[in-house]
Amino acid sequence: MNKVKTLDDLKKMRESLRASLDLREKSNTPDQLVQIKVSMATCGIAAGAKEIMSYFIEVLNRENIDALVTQTGCMGYCYAEPTIEIKLPGKEPLVFGYVDKTKVEEIINKYIRQGILVDGIIPVTYTAVKPE
């Protein structure tokens, strides 16, 4: 691991990390790198987010869909846990709530494969401070 020695080091690192995030976001090949974030704070996990995350990975593997599944913190929609966010390449991210195994199948088959929206979308109700 290279240590960060100066502020410039860190800024260079930030640029390259941003570029790699960007690459993922701007990818134009729709069957590549779908990004799925599972809200995994204690409350999400208590509502079954861990099982949902492993089930996502399992089904995506089975169906041979190239996707990136990661965990993230609390999105704030505690009433609708487990919640997940899906970002298809070139599209705005969408949040789905009350995700169970049936919903996972539906999301994968309809939204991820065909881009068709399904019931259960949670409209994002906040703006977050973005990087400079």
């Binding site: 690192m13 930030r14 990390l17 995030l21 990661t70 913190g73 704030g76 977050a128 401070v129 400079e132």
Partner: peptide, 19 residues
């Protein structure tokens, strides 16, 4: 809460990418 629900909390790289 800017990064909550946005980055992977266990990955410092994602935090750095967000300044």
């Amino acid at each position: 809460l800017r990064n909550c629900g946005f980055i992977n909390p266990e990955n410092i790289d994602e935090y750095i990418a967000r300044d």
